[in-house]
Simulated scan of single mutants.
Amino acid sequence: MTVPPYLAVAMQLAARSVEAAPDVAAARAGILAHIQELEVELAGTRRFLETFSGTPLKLAVLPEYLFTGFPTGRVQDFPARAIFAPDGPEYRALGEVAKRLGLFIAGNAYESDPHFPTLYFQASFLVAPTGQVVLRYRRLNSMFTASPHDVWSAYCRHYGPEAIFPVADTEIGRIAAIASEEILYPEIARAHALRGAELFVHSSSEAGGLLPSAKQIARRARALENLAYVVSANTAGIAMSDIAGASADGNSAIIDWRGTVMAEALSGPNVNAFAEIDIEAVRRARRKPGMSNYLARQRLELFRDTYAGVVQPADSLIEDGKVKPSASLDAVRILREIIDRRARQGLI
C-alpha cells in the first residue's frame, strides 16, 4: 500500500505527577481529565499545522509518562494511582480521542498485566483512528521498573517472540516504539527495523539544553543506521513533582531516515517539532543496492557468538518458579554483580 506524505508532530507537553493528588480517586480522575484536555490541544494543533502546511496531520507522539509522572517514592500507592490496565478506561478514553480526531496517537504509560499481577511495566503504545491500540511495546532496558526480561521465561511462554519487538503495519507506514533511554541501545532499534519498522515513535523525558545530549546524538544515529524516521516527544517539564519543573524539558525532534534533524523544539509546552513524513522515500532507500543501504548490508551472523554471551541475566524477578513483586527489583545490586564479574574476566 502506497503511503502519501503526511505530517507528524512531537507534542512537547508538561507531564503531571499523580503523587501530588490527595488520594487514589483524585489521581485517577485527574488522568482522565488530562486526556480530555489533550483532545482540545490535539484538535487545535491539527487545525494550526494543517493550515500552515497544507498537509494532513496523521500522527501525534506524546511524551513519556505524560499523564502520571514517574514514581519518586513520595507516595507508597503509586501503582494504584498511576497504572493503566491494558483494557482500562485510560486507553478507552485515548481511543475515543483518536477516533474523533482521526489521528494516530503514540504515547507511554505504566501498565499492568493480568499474567503478572505483582508487576507493572513501562509500555509504549500506538492508538489508531479506529480507537484500537494497534501497538503495545513493553520497555526492555529498564532499571527501576520491571522489564519483560526480568520474567523472560514466563513472558515468552505467555506472549511468544513476536510480542517482544512488535511492529504495527498501518496506513501511515510500519511503526515501532522505542521507550525513552532505550534510544541509546542500538540493538532495540535494529531489531524493530529488521522486522520492517519504517518509523520509530520515541516518548521521552529528558534534560534539554544547548549542548547535544546523549539522546539527541542517539536519535540521529538510530535514524541513519536503520533508514527510518524518528519522532521523539520530550516532556515540557513535570508539574506537581518534587523536582524543579523544567528539569526534563525541551528538544523534541523529528529526524528523517538520513539522520537529518527536520524540526526541533526549544523549551516549554509547544508543537514546534513537526515535519512532513515521506514513508515512500524510506522504502526507495531500502530497495537501493548501494553502500548507504545499511540494513541490507548487515552481516548479523558475525555477531551471533558475541551476543550469545550473557551480560545482564534474564528472570531476575523469578525465584523458585514464582514471580516476585516489582519492588523486589534490586537494579543497583544486579549492576554491581555484572560489573564485578566483567572486571574479574578482564573485560573492563
Rank of each mutant, 00 (worst) to 15 (best):
E206Y: 00
E225A: 07
D305Q: 09
F200H: 11
M240L: 15
L224S: 09
G196T: 02
L300N: 14
S205C: 11
L224P: 13
E301I: 03
E206M: 00
P212L: 09
H192M: 12
I188P: 12
I217H: 04
E187W: 06
I183C: 11
S316Y: 06
S241H: 12
Y294L: 13
M240H: 15
N226D: 08
A263V: 00
S213L: 00
G196D: 02
I279T: 04
P186F: 02
R283T: 01
N251I: 00
A189V: 06
Y294I: 00
R220V: 06
Y185A: 09
R304G: 05
S247A: 14
G245W: 10
I217A: 06
S252M: 03
Y229D: 03
S205H: 06
I277R: 10
G268L: 03
I255E: 10
I277A: 04
S247I: 01
F303Q: 13
S267W: 02
I178W: 11
N270M: 05
A179E: 15
I254L: 12
R258I: 00
S241E: 12
A193P: 10
D249H: 00
V310P: 08
I318K: 08
H192G: 06
L302G: 04
T260P: 03
E225F: 12
R299P: 01
E301V: 04
S292V: 04
A223V: 00
A197D: 03
A214R: 11
R195V: 01
A233S: 10
I243S: 15
A179R: 14
P212E: 11
E187V: 03
P313V: 00
I183P: 14
E187I: 04
A285C: 02
F200C: 13
L227A: 10
E182T: 04
L224R: 15
A263W: 02
A281L: 03
A296K: 13
R195G: 08
M291Y: 09
A214Y: 03
V271I: 07
I188V: 12
A248E: 15
R222M: 14
R258K: 15
G208K: 04
N251R: 14
Y294G: 01
R299T: 07
R222L: 10
R220M: 11
Q298V: 01
L211M: 07
E225Y: 10
E276A: 07
V311F: 04
P289N: 09
I318H: 07
I178F: 07
V271D: 13
